[in-house]
Design a protein around this nucleic acid. Structure first.
Lengths: 204, 204
DNA sequence: ATTAGGTTGAGAAAAATTTCACAATAAAGT
DNA sequence: ACTTTATTGTGAAATTTTTCTCAACCTAAT
């Protein structure tokens, strides 16, 4: 089992490898992939060796082999269905992102409390919150993206959890109170922007 | 100077504290703030003491004092102007986010290569990429949010850097090649979602 | 005034993560 | 066949981050 930080790297490797493969490469060195993903060569090797992925003593790693190992690790043999709760701009942006196919993920529906957001001709169906249960069950969804405003986040999360959701990607700027069996991954874009400002030396 | 991980916590404290203040609280314990932000009480104290912020031996920390210390650290005495490059759904979502005011940040303009996205009546002006230089100079912008598709990201970044940008919040799923004096903060929502899936035990 | 209780502050320990250093070795050149 | 060279694989060291532990000490109660 990978650690949470390691997983991030592994997924970045996957992205980088797909790019390199598309460019026609078949082999890659730890150093090359490291440069492509912002990771040191040693760490790239450590990560792979932690999952029993072998390279060739002088010829680097086989890209197809790496990719299939990573796909095995990340269960990319079957499509994972996802729902988006909160169909504001952020929800739309995420649900329309083109990259889901490449990652064997599929946004099956959106939910919103605002009746104006429903029934619009949109690339995925957008339902009121009441329909959450049936959709989650019908599509066997276990992970949701939460893009509602701060004040609505906890309630929406409670709803999701009540319907059996096991993981939430939380884009709202609050820490959700959730039971232990539910995993929350918090991404706060405002914090990321402020952090950037601070460390880019713009302030002071 | 805070570390990159520490900064994330400090900014979360700030958000949590603003929330607690709005609820009428004046004092907070490390334990309380920790629960509000998902950080252990010890670490909350360590973070504060690293910046010389003192609490009261039995009465916790003064919220106003904490907030003003944090605002000093993060230069919140003046507004920081920001631009968004790529006015797709993600760019729109970020530029419309209501929370910027509270954080003394201001999105002054958007840029897009697509003429259809320009001149629309929108809450901020959207210019073609050619205007980047003048806007960045006029508004003294040093940090940009990059929300263009993968293939356009490096070129857009090069443009920004050429115009003197010092920090980029990169939402595109590529590692940008940038000179040392430019700081990039990469946020990859696809990776965050996949990571969540992996660790929520949904796979396998 | 004295005592009891609860919280900070910080040094020490532990844990996690990353880098260092280099032996092993496969490939390529001579 | 032999040598050189480049790269992996991995233990050891270093660094970073977090938790543990507890003395110091303020506040409130008696």
């Amino acid at each position: 089992m990978a650690t949470f930080t390691q997983t991030k790297r592994l997924l970045r490797y996957r992205m980088g490898l797909m790019r390199l493969k598309k460019m026609g490469l078949e082999r890659v060195f730890s150093y090359t992939l490291g440069k492509e993903t912002g990771v040191s060569a040693e760490l790239v090797r450590k990560d792979f060796s932690a999952f029993g992925i072998k390279g060739h003593r002088r010829g680097g790693y086989d890209i197809d082999n790496l990719l299939s190992s990573l796909e095995r690790i990340f269960g990319k043999d079957r499509v994972q269905n996802v729902v988006v709760v909160g169909m504001g701009n952020m929800g739309k942006a995420i649900s329309m992102y083109q990259g889901f196919q490449d990652h064997n993920m599929n946004v099956v529906a959106g939910f919103d409390i605002d009746p104006a957001k429903l029934n619009k001709k949109f690339h995925i169906p957008v339902y009121p919150l009441e329909n959450m249960g049936e959709v989650i069950e019908a599509f066997n969804v276990s992970v949701a993206v939460l893009t509602v405003p701060e004040v609505a986040a906890q309630e929406a999360a409670d709803n999701l959890i009540g319907q059996g959701i096991q993981g939430i990607l939380n884009l709202a700027p609050v820490l959700l109170k959730t039971p232990d069996h539910v995993l929350v991954n918090n991404v706060n874009l405002m914090v990321e922007l402020e952090r950037l400002m601070y460390h880019s030396g713009v302030l002071k």
